[in-house]
């Protein structure tokens, strides 16, 4: 199997690190699109922490050596060169667009958790319409608070995305930040932490632009 790490632009040289299952890294070019892969003797469809870390490590190293990287999702495996080439050809224009979007940028992740939430909703007596009304108001307030954290960061980003889903997070988002804005972005996060002492804000990064690599999840 061929394991794909990502699509790269102007990669100086392959990093001297091993890939998943200790495979050696190789460069491939399909219609002007450059890929970094390694070979695995088995169909690697089992997730182990080791394999995930190897994949992430290779992608990080590629970030340090190229002008743009579209990280591949773990598990992008192909039987042979032909299958890989076909898959790349089918997505060539999206990949080129993707590279253009992420060029010169890094990704930051942000989670904001409202510490007061749990206690407040637990103490409320469920009593019909008033309860529903109160819940709606609460939900509206939560949304407004999430926007207050999200919007200033959006203004410093080339792209951003909010992850929906069943999590207790007030806000779970990712921001694609141009290299020259990173310091300002961090300052803004710090300002938001100070402005919202009730929130637990965890900002992670810089990451390779995983959340902006696939155009199907169109960043807003």
């Amino acid at each position: 199997m061929i394991h794909l790490y990502g699509v790269v632009e102007e990669l100086e040289e392959l990093p001297a690190v091993a890939g998943v299952d200790l495979g050696s890294l190789e460069r491939h070019r399909v219609e002007g699109i450059e890929l970094v892969v390694s070979r695995t003797p088995i169909e690697r469809n089992e997730v182990t922490q080791e394999a995930v870390m190897s994949h992430a490590n290779v992608v990080e190293e590629l970030m340090a050596r190229s002008c743009a990287v579209l990280p591949a999702r773990f598990g992008s495996a192909f039987v042979d060169e032909q299958e890989l080439a076909d898959a790349v050809r089918a997505k060539a224009s999206e990949l080129t667009r993707g590279l253009k979007l992420v060029r010169g940028c890094v990704e930051f992740g942000l989670r904001a958790v409202d510490g007061k939430d749990a206690a407040e909703s637990a103490s409320r007596e469920p009593s019909g319409r008033d309860y529903m009304r109160a819940r709606l108001a609460e939900e509206k307030a939560r949304r407004r608070l999430a926007d207050e954290v999200h919007e200033p960061l959006v203004r410093l980003s080339r792209a951003s995305t909010r992850f929906a889903g069943a999590s207790p997070d007030l806000l779970h988002a990712a921001y694609l930040v141009p290299g020259q804005e990173v310091a300002v972005f961090r300052e803004e996060v710090h300002r938001l932490e100070t402005a919202h002492p009730d929130l637990m804000i965890v900002c992670t990064g810089p990451w390779p632009p995983y959340s902006f690599a696939d155009s199907r999840e169109s960043p807003a």
């Binding site: 089992e46 995930v52 990280p71 999702r73 773990f74 992008s76 995983y210």
Partner: peptide
């Protein structure tokens, strides 16, 4: 966890089928 989430759930998908356990 943010790292694991990114590697497993984000990133570009070229092949239609990604089979993970």
């Amino acid at each position: 966890l943010e790292l694991v989430d990114r590697v497993l759930n984000k990133g570009v998908v070229l092949s239609g089928d990604i089979t993970l356990s």
